[in-house]
Lab assay of single mutants.
Amino acid sequence: LETFPLDVLVNTAAEDLPRGVDPSRKENYLSDEDFKAVFGMTRSAFANLPLWKQQNLKKEKGLF
């Protein structure tokens, strides 16, 4: 999966995202380093959170 810089994904409308980016899964296009910096946890820890908590975190970080 291709990764993009944080500033390309945060608070970006679906139509302005790079081609192929799923707007409902912007976090998947962050590098592992950016993911950890944004969410303060690994991808696996994030995946283990309840869906509502994942969505709330994504909203807080501008990735929803």
Rank of each mutant, 00 (worst) to 15 (best):
Leu1Tyr: 15
Leu1Arg: 13
Leu1Cys: 14
Glu2Gln: 13
Glu2Pro: 15
Glu2Arg: 08
Glu2Ile: 15
Glu2Leu: 15
Glu2Trp: 06
Glu2Thr: 13
Thr3Cys: 09
Thr3Gly: 05
Thr3Met: 09
Thr3Pro: 06
Thr3Glu: 06
Phe4Ile: 09
Phe4Trp: 13
Phe4Cys: 07
Phe4Ala: 03
Phe4Val: 06
Phe4Met: 07
Phe4Gly: 03
Phe4Pro: 03
Phe4Asp: 03
Phe4Arg: 02
Pro5Cys: 05
Pro5Gln: 04
Pro5Thr: 06
Pro5Asp: 07
Pro5Phe: 04
Pro5His: 04
Leu6Phe: 12
Leu6Asp: 03
Leu6Tyr: 13
Leu6Ser: 04
Leu6Cys: 07
Asp7Ile: 09
Asp7Trp: 14
Asp7Leu: 10
Asp7Ala: 12
Asp7Glu: 13
Asp7Gly: 10
Asp7Ser: 14
Val8Cys: 11
Val8Gly: 03
Val8Phe: 15
Val8Gln: 12
Val8His: 08
Leu9Gln: 02
Leu9Phe: 02
Val10Gln: 13
Val10Leu: 14
Val10Phe: 06
Val10Trp: 05
Val10Pro: 02
Val10Lys: 10
Val10Glu: 05
Asn11Pro: 05
Asn11Asp: 08
Asn11Leu: 07
Asn11Ser: 10
Asn11Val: 08
Asn11Arg: 10
Asn11Ala: 08
Asn11Met: 08
Asn11Gly: 10
Asn11Tyr: 05
Asn11Lys: 12
Thr12Tyr: 07
Thr12Ser: 12
Thr12Gly: 08
Ala13Thr: 10
Ala13Arg: 13
Ala13Val: 11
Ala13Met: 10
Ala13Trp: 06
Ala13His: 10
Ala13Pro: 13
Ala14Tyr: 10
Ala14Trp: 12
Ala14Met: 11
Ala14Phe: 09
Ala14Gln: 10
Glu15Pro: 09
Glu15Asp: 09
Glu15Asn: 10
Glu15Val: 11
Glu15His: 12
Glu15Ala: 14
Glu15Phe: 01
Glu15Ile: 11
Glu15Lys: 14
Glu15Tyr: 01
Glu15Cys: 13
Asp16Glu: 12
Asp16Arg: 09
Asp16Lys: 11
Asp16Thr: 08
Asp16Gly: 09
Asp16Gln: 10
Asp16Tyr: 07
Leu17Asn: 04
Leu17Lys: 03
Leu17Phe: 07
Leu17Ser: 05
Leu17Thr: 05
Leu17Trp: 06
Leu17Val: 06
Leu17Glu: 03
Pro18His: 03
Pro18Gln: 04
Pro18Ile: 04
Pro18Tyr: 01
Pro18Val: 03
Pro18Glu: 04
Arg19Leu: 14
Arg19Tyr: 10
Arg19Val: 15
Arg19Phe: 14
Arg19Met: 14
Arg19Asp: 15
Arg19Pro: 15
Gly20Asp: 08
Gly20Ser: 12
Gly20Ile: 09
Gly20Trp: 12
Gly20His: 11
Val21Ile: 11
Val21Thr: 04
Val21Tyr: 05
Val21Ala: 04
Val21Gly: 03
Asp22Asn: 08
Asp22Trp: 02
Asp22Ile: 06
Asp22Arg: 04
Asp22Cys: 08
Asp22Leu: 05
Asp22Ala: 04
Asp22Met: 05
Pro23Ser: 08
Pro23Lys: 07
Pro23Cys: 07
Pro23Asp: 06
Pro23Arg: 06
Pro23Tyr: 07
Ser24Lys: 11
Ser24Arg: 13
Ser24Gly: 10
Ser24Ala: 14
Ser24Asp: 15
Ser24Pro: 03
Arg25Asp: 03
Arg25Ala: 10
Arg25Val: 09
Arg25Gly: 05
Arg25Thr: 07
Arg25Met: 10
Arg25Gln: 09
Arg25Tyr: 12
Arg25Leu: 09
Lys26His: 03
Lys26Thr: 07
Lys26Leu: 15
Lys26Ser: 04
Lys26Trp: 05
Lys26Arg: 14
Lys26Val: 15
Lys26Ile: 15
Lys26Met: 15
Lys26Gly: 02
Lys26Asn: 02
Glu27Asn: 02
Glu27Phe: 02
Glu27Ala: 03
Glu27Met: 04
Glu27His: 03
Glu27Tyr: 01
Glu27Leu: 04
Glu27Ser: 02
Glu27Val: 03
Glu27Trp: 01
Asn28Cys: 14
Asn28Arg: 09
Asn28Ala: 15
Asn28Lys: 10
Asn28Phe: 11
Asn28His: 11
Asn28Ile: 12
Asn28Met: 15
Asn28Glu: 14
Tyr29Asp: 03
Tyr29Met: 03
Tyr29Val: 02
Tyr29Asn: 06
Leu30Ser: 01
Leu30Asn: 01
Leu30Ile: 08
Leu30Glu: 01
Leu30Trp: 03
Ser31Gln: 03
Ser31Pro: 02
Ser31Cys: 06
Ser31Leu: 03
Asp32Lys: 05
Asp32Leu: 07
Asp32His: 07
Asp32Met: 06
Asp32Val: 06
Asp32Ile: 06
Asp32Ser: 06
Asp32Cys: 07
Glu33Pro: 08
Glu33Tyr: 10
Glu33Gln: 11
Glu33Ser: 11
Glu33Ile: 12
Glu33Val: 11
Glu33Lys: 10
Asp34Ile: 06
Asp34Ala: 07
Asp34Asn: 05
Asp34Glu: 09
Asp34Phe: 02
Asp34Arg: 01
Phe35Thr: 00
Phe35Leu: 01
Phe35Pro: 00
Phe35Lys: 00
Phe35Gln: 00
Phe35His: 00
Phe35Tyr: 02
Lys36Trp: 15
Lys36Met: 14
Lys36Pro: 02
Lys36Ser: 14
Lys36Gln: 15
Lys36Glu: 15
Lys36Arg: 13
Ala37Thr: 13
Ala37Asp: 13
Ala37Trp: 12
Ala37Tyr: 12
Val38Tyr: 04
Val38Gln: 03
Val38Gly: 01
Val38Ser: 05
Val38Met: 06
Val38Glu: 04
Val38His: 05
Val38Ala: 08
Phe39Cys: 01
Phe39Trp: 01
Phe39Asp: 00
Phe39Ala: 00
Phe39Lys: 00
Gly40Phe: 05
Gly40Ala: 08
Gly40Tyr: 04
Gly40Thr: 04
Gly40Trp: 03
Gly40Ser: 08
Met41Gly: 00
Met41Lys: 01
Met41Ser: 01
Met41Glu: 00
Met41Phe: 04
Met41Cys: 07
Met41Leu: 07
Met41Ala: 01
Met41Arg: 01
Met41Asn: 00
Thr42Gln: 07
Thr42Tyr: 05
Thr42His: 07
Thr42Ala: 10
Thr42Leu: 08
Arg43Gly: 01
Arg43His: 06
Arg43Asp: 01
Arg43Glu: 01
Arg43Gln: 07
Arg43Ala: 05
Arg43Cys: 05
Ser44His: 12
Ser44Phe: 12
Ser44Glu: 15
Ala45Arg: 09
Ala45Gln: 14
Ala45Asn: 10
Ala45Cys: 10
Ala45Thr: 11
Phe46Asn: 00
Phe46Ser: 00
Phe46His: 00
Phe46Gln: 00
Phe46Tyr: 07
Ala47Gly: 11
Ala47His: 13
Ala47Met: 13
Ala47Ile: 11
Ala47Phe: 12
Ala47Asp: 09
Asn48His: 11
Asn48Ile: 12
Asn48Leu: 13
Asn48Ala: 14
Asn48Lys: 14
Asn48Pro: 01
Asn48Val: 12
Asn48Glu: 15
Asn48Phe: 10
Leu49Glu: 05
Leu49Phe: 06
Leu49Met: 09
Leu49Asn: 00
Leu49Ser: 01
Leu49Val: 02
Leu49Pro: 00
Leu49Gly: 00
Leu49Asp: 00
Pro50Thr: 05
Pro50Asn: 03
Pro50Leu: 01
Pro50Glu: 07
Pro50Phe: 01
Pro50Ile: 01
Pro50Ser: 07
Pro50Cys: 06
Pro50Trp: 01
Leu51Lys: 10
Leu51Gly: 09
Leu51Phe: 13
Leu51Val: 12
Leu51Ser: 09
Leu51Thr: 09
Trp52Ser: 11
Trp52Asp: 13
Trp52Gly: 07
Trp52Leu: 08
Trp52Lys: 08
Lys53Thr: 14
Lys53Trp: 11
Lys53Asn: 11
Lys53His: 13
Lys53Gln: 14
Lys53Met: 14
Lys53Cys: 14
Gln54Glu: 00
Gln54Gly: 00
Gln54Asp: 00
Gln54Pro: 00
Gln54Thr: 01
Gln54Cys: 01
Gln54Ala: 04
Gln55Ala: 11
Gln55Ile: 15
Gln55Asp: 14
Gln55Thr: 14
Asn56His: 13
Asn56Ile: 13
Asn56Lys: 15
Asn56Tyr: 13
Asn56Phe: 11
Asn56Arg: 12
Asn56Trp: 12
Asn56Ala: 14
Leu57Val: 05
Leu57Asn: 01
Leu57Ala: 05
Leu57Thr: 03
Leu57His: 04
Lys58Glu: 02
Lys58Ile: 07
Lys58Ala: 04
Lys58Gln: 02
Lys58Pro: 00
Lys58Tyr: 04
Lys59Pro: 00
Lys59Ile: 11
Lys59Asn: 08
Lys59Met: 11
Lys59Gly: 06
Lys59Leu: 15
Glu60Ile: 10
Glu60Arg: 07
Glu60Asn: 07
Glu60His: 07
Lys61Tyr: 08
Lys61Ser: 09
Lys61Cys: 08
Lys61Thr: 07
Lys61Glu: 03
Lys61Asp: 00
Gly62His: 05
Gly62Phe: 06
Gly62Asn: 06
Gly62Trp: 02
Gly62Arg: 04
Leu63His: 04
Leu63Met: 08
Leu63Asp: 04
Phe64Glu: 15
Phe64Cys: 15
Phe64Gly: 15
